[in-house]
Design a protein around this nucleic acid. Structure first.
Lengths: 255, 255
DNA sequence: CGGCGAATTGACCCGCATCAACTATCGTGG
DNA sequence: CCACGATAGTTGATGCGGGTCAATTCGCCG
């Protein structure tokens, strides 16, 4: 599950909150110095959001998109009967609602699952930047298509995997995505979610998530406790989850 | 469930296979005559694919994207244990694998579920067209983000709805999407899928889909028989499905 | 030490899978 | 024109994965 990490950004000094986004993009393609400068110039300094605060409400008109700098965000859908579903988790370096650049409102809310820092970028600034640097535009487009690929992987999990494989698959995915931005080492990563959050991602109840976590712990595959995921047996966890990182498009290639 | 349909394309004559895509885009934003001409000029004449033929294999390198002109396509994932999952259905007017423009390969296969006609467009031609017409680029980007919104809706269904609501939701979604391109009237639409195809979309077995179809028929909500969906009680079906077309972004607005 | 959300565990139940048999439909060749 | 084979659809019997309900326990913070 270990990934070769591409070279980090070169000019961290002024706008360090853009660094993880650049790590994510440079994992997939080259980003020229001019493109990097353009990107850094349009992302505003981050703002702080406390855990459990809604960052964006469903259907609210939007003229900016938020880059997650620190913390965890969830794309949440509240249902008639009070149930909640999380359709994607965002980790630092994700342009969490970049899709609002074309959609102009969201079909779901964005919820801070932990304390977060978010750096906003005006849609008008994105228009200007990508008209000047079309390749940068394609990289941003790519990152929304990567989110869609993650949606598809979750769809497959929800449709065709049992609870243990589903949970294992999510933990494998986060391992890879966090490694790309330097927030996981080979043994695991911090994850300040509740079991109920995981249940809302996986289409399960928190009661059942609890039982499955115990099962995975007793099978010595992975431990989730005290806000930290420790992967004891990466190969075994991969096998249980039927996990392949192909859908995360980790290879560097002209886009 | 009836939608106000935006004005159709103006210059159908030469490349009618692009018409439904333009209907879909013009439902959401204006498309100038120049943008229309650029789009028509880069889409090649359609090719025929028989039912059950794989159109694109998972991970195959791609330098073109396919516009579905006639028929139904599915994005399919084949699993280790022989199960299949369909993560999206495509209707005519959908640029089915436009996401390969940035991804360069797909994390899933594209399968012709019925006899299809597909019009290909080279990625290099798309690059040129959208550098000249950035707004057209954003419209195409929008359409991949719309696919992602559909993924999220399916995710919610799979995670939080029971079999009857899940099936009802899919039938409601197809009604709206087909109406936009003129392939559904207020009473229903042709749908040449098997019950097994539906099961593969919904994360169910064909046996259970059969039972639920019977239930929906007996409750006089909707009938699916002989390759045709007849919606007897649109309001009732909507209510059962907890369906709202918000996630399909039907409103016209500058993108 | 008290309060409160999160985690944990047990008992019971139900929706959907599984397995199996049978029918309907349709294209194809004798 | 019918026999047939293949595929899709239909229905019943049975079992299990995960939901539901309820009661503790844990862990953190004031």
């Amino acid at each position: 599950m270990v990934i070769a990490i591409a070279d980090g950004p070169s000019q961290t000094g002024a706008t360090p909150w853009v660094d993880k986004l650049l790590m994510k993009l440079r994992q997939r393609d080259d980003v020229s110095a001019a493109e990097e400068a353009a990107l850094r110039s349009i992302v505003e300094p981050p703002q702080v959001y406390p855990a459990r605060r809604m960052v964006i409400e469903e259907n609210e008109p939007l003229d900016r998109s938020g880059l997650l700098v620190d913390g965890l965000l969830g794309r949440v859908k509240n249902m008639r009967d009070g149930q909640q579903h999380i359709s994607e988790l965002h980790v630092p370096g994700d342009f969490a609602d970049l899709h609002s650049f074309t959609l102009k409102r969201l079909d779901h809310g964005i919820l801070a699952l932990t304390d977060c820092r978010i750096a906003w970028t005006k849609h008008s600034a994105i228009v200007t930047a990508i008209e000047q640097f079309p390749h940068l535009g394609r990289l941003l487009w790519f990152s929304t298509n990567l989110d869609a690929a993650i949606h598809r992987a979750w769809t497959v999990s929800l449709g065709r995997r049992d609870a243990a494989a589903r949970l294992a698959h999510l933990l494998c995915e986060l391992q890879v995505r966090l490694e790309v931005v330097g927030l996981a080492d080979a043994t695991g990563y911090p994850l300040a979610l509740t079991q109920n959050d995981l249940a809302n991602c996986l289409g399960l109840t928190s009661v059942h998530v609890n039982r499955v976590l115990r099962e995975l712990r007793e099978r010595r595959l992975v431990t989730f406790r005290g806000g930290h995921v420790t992967i004891a047996d990466p190969a075994g966890l991969n096998a249980l989850a039927d996990f392949s990182p192909d859908y995360l498009f980790l290879e560097k290639r002209p886009r």
